[in-house]
């Protein structure tokens, strides 16, 4: 291997790693706020990618239907959860958030699609369609058992993953899609050429991370989320409902996932079931960050991307074996740092 090959591999690893980093961040966010290990995070990448590709191809993507169905389910779940304290106003607000909103987005999609929306409009619309799926899922699947153990929440998350993969096949079909990126430009740096879209991916990922850190550091909502993460009772005392924070965390997770999908679908072909492995790698990184530290998780994600890139050069058949085995020593190190017997939550 010469230097230029290594350079290309590093560059490829960083681009993939940037996506993993985004997912890792949102996994950390969701976990710290809600204690849910959000396995279906990857599905949002696939949904976002295929929705965007569908819009580009001039179709109303199947995820619009999914959005409406899940919205209705969230409506019913919320009604049931709040059945003892429902007023007309609350029902109306619920209906607006879970029934009208999806309908409005669906209507928008129908209006826009025939006019062959550009890249930016498609991307925004894809985000609009896919993002609300996450908070709806939160209401349907996780909120009713918000106080269950981490393990139970994890198994439920796996259940959500199963269901979403199955729905993905129904709505998007078995074949993959690619779409136009934000740019076709290719920049030459000596021996290495860099696709403009790759720069977009890395740049947007970095911008998003910066935005998130501003959000957590400066805004009241962000601080509230952090408070929930640190101390759930305390957060309630300050007047921030845990459920509200959970919903915001899921909205962010949905948006980050969908955006990752939009970014990556011009670099590669995405299938309805691509998300799981992408999510799992983001996950590996999040775990390395202890499901708590954003910067460590982001760095680890870049590391996973680069490792994967080199593994595919050295031993492509064993790439996944290498990537997923690499997490084990890290985890071991974690567990050995703690001495003695400790009770699990």
């Amino acid at each position: 291997m010469d230097f230029s090959i290594a350079l290309i591999l590093v560059q490829d690893g960083i681009v993939n790693g940037a996506i993993y980093a985004l997912l890792a961040l949102s996994l950390v966010l969701v976990f710290t706020v809600t204690r849910v290990v959000f396995i279906p995070q990857g599905e949002f990448v696939a949904y976002g990618a295929l929705t965007y590709a569908g819009l580009q191809a001039g179709q109303v993507p199947g995820s619009v239907g999914l959005l409406c169905v899940l919205g209705a389910a969230a409506f019913l779940a919320s009604l049931w959860a709040e059945r003892h304290q429902l007023g007309a106003g609350r029902v109306a607000r619920l209906a607006a958030g879970t029934l009208l909103l999806p309908a409005a987005i669906a209507g928008l999609a129908w209006l826009v699609v025939p006019h062959h929306p550009g890249v930016v409009v498609s991307a925004l619309l894809a985000l609009l369609i896919v993002t609300p799926v996450a908070p709806y899922l939160y209401r349907v699947a996780f909120r009713p058992i918000a106080h269950a153990s981490v393990l139970v929440l994890l198994i439920v998350a796996v259940g959500v993953h199963l269901a979403l993969t199955g729905l993905g096949l129904v709505f998007f079909g078995p074949e993959g899609s690619r779409a136009d990126g934000f740019t076709d430009a290719i920049f030459d740096f000596g021996t290495v050429s860099v696709a403009g879209q790759s720069l977009w991916v890395v740049g947007l990922a970095a911008a998003l991370m910066a935005g998130l850190s501003l959000f957590f550091g400066r805004t009241l909502t962000g601080k509230a989320l952090r408070a929930t993460a640190v101390n759930r009772v305390g957060a309630r005392l300050v007047g921030i409902g845990i459920e509200r924070s959970g919903e915001i965390a899921f909205i962010l997770a949905g948006a980050v996932g969908a955006l990752s999908g939009v970014l990556i679908v011009s670099l590669t072909t995405i299938y309805y079931d691509t998300g799981f492995l992408i999510g799992l790698k983001g996950f590996t990184a999040a775990i390395v960050g202890g499901l708590a530290s954003y910067p460590v998780a982001a760095l680890a994600a870049i590391g996973v991307g680069v490792l994967e890139s080199f593994a595919s050069f050295w031993a492509s058949a064993f790439k996944e074996v290498i990537v997923f085995t690499a997490i084990i020593p890290v985890l071991l190190w974690f567990s050995l740092r703690h001495h003695g017997v400790e009770d699990e939550e």
């Binding site: 199963l162 199955g166 096949l169």
Partner: peptide, 12 residues
Amino acid sequence: NFETIVFGALLI
């Protein structure tokens, strides 16, 4: 793959 959808929902 309706089984996966149903099984996912069942698990939840």
